[in-house]
Amino acid sequence: MRAVVLRSYGPPSQLGVEDVPAPQLKPGHVKLRVHAVGFGFPDALTVAGKYQVKPEVPFTPGSEVAGVVTEVASDVLHIEPGARVLAMTGQGGLAEECIAPADKLILLPDSMSMAAAAGFLVNYGTTYHALVQRANLQAGETLLVLGAAGGVGLTAIEIGKALGARVLAAASTDEKLALAKQHGADDVFNYTKDTIKAKVMEFTAERGIDVAYDPVGGDFAEQCVRSMAWNGRYLVIGFAAGKIPAIPLNLALLKGCSLVGVFWGTHTRREPEVHAANLKALFKLFEEGKIKPHVTEMDGLDRFTEALEVLNGRKATGKVVIRVARES
């Protein structure tokens, strides 16, 4: 079968599509025919050797996989071949076939396409956990979303609106701001042209924001904290700007605000019951049409380099999804 293989950490040129042996089924697992793979900023960091987890090379990247079960281990009784599923595989996703743990599979509703599924779990799961458990976002509060047209940014707009918040969206181009508006943002501004605090105070009549959702980091983080209302919550989502910010802690004291970390992967392992409830709520929102995954779809394994360039250049809107096969 064909698969993307990383043989040494570094730039995208270190990867290539190769013919490799098909993966072998093992107890407690299923084999999937891969249809689509979600590819996000953590994947780009992993390939570059800059993520918290550094797999031993060589390996095939890609962990968020939508596909069809083709084979099940003899001890797997709750799933059958032909099932349409979403799986977190850890690695091995960017291939024509992959192996996934059976107890981690999520059955897909018929109304959800493979491309939408591949862009669903990590981004929406992260955001729902962030806004509901970590920020306790309430109806009527004001939510600021940075990187608003990116993979997690659009999900924050949609979920924020579904929870009854007023959403301010910040992005770097007019095109991205227009997309944020289409997904429900109440007000938008370009944070490369206007200072965050000035626009926030303009939009909130000098009150400030209750929750800041920041997947960008860098120099924008301190601006967000300076824009907080009393009892505000600043959510640490990620650092797409490439720089981990150092925020003066006196701001948290003066604002009476909280700096709140969000680590979805660890949350799913430590709080599996909460994670399961979150997924149930998210699929309900999808069926109700309140969330609609927006993906930048790329057709074929050979486009992995382009996917990395789009992510590293912060040019993607929504989630980057690599299409491996089409549904018949």
Rank of each mutant, 00 (worst) to 15 (best):
Q182V: 01
G153I: 03
L143N: 05
I196N: 12
E309K: 11
T192K: 14
E80V: 09
K50W: 09
H183W: 11
D302V: 05
V145K: 06
C257E: 01
L137W: 01
Y234V: 01
V274A: 15
L285V: 04
V152M: 08
K176W: 06
F59I: 00
Y213Q: 06
K161N: 10
D194F: 09
F59E: 08
A115Y: 06
E306K: 03
H29D: 10
V310M: 10
V65P: 07
I196Q: 07
G92F: 02
Q182I: 02
A180K: 08
M228F: 01
P11Y: 00
V4Y: 00
Y128E: 08
I157N: 02
L25K: 01
A205R: 15
P11E: 05
T268H: 08
L282V: 00
V262S: 07
R270T: 15
V167H: 06
P27E: 14
P42G: 13
D174W: 00
A229S: 15
A83N: 07
V47L: 00
A87G: 00
A212V: 02
L144E: 08
V30T: 03
R233Q: 00
I157C: 03
A162M: 10
M112I: 13
A135P: 10
R233C: 02
T60Y: 03
P27C: 13
A148I: 11
T60Q: 08
D19C: 12
I209Y: 04
D19N: 14
A36M: 05
T192D: 09
V30M: 05
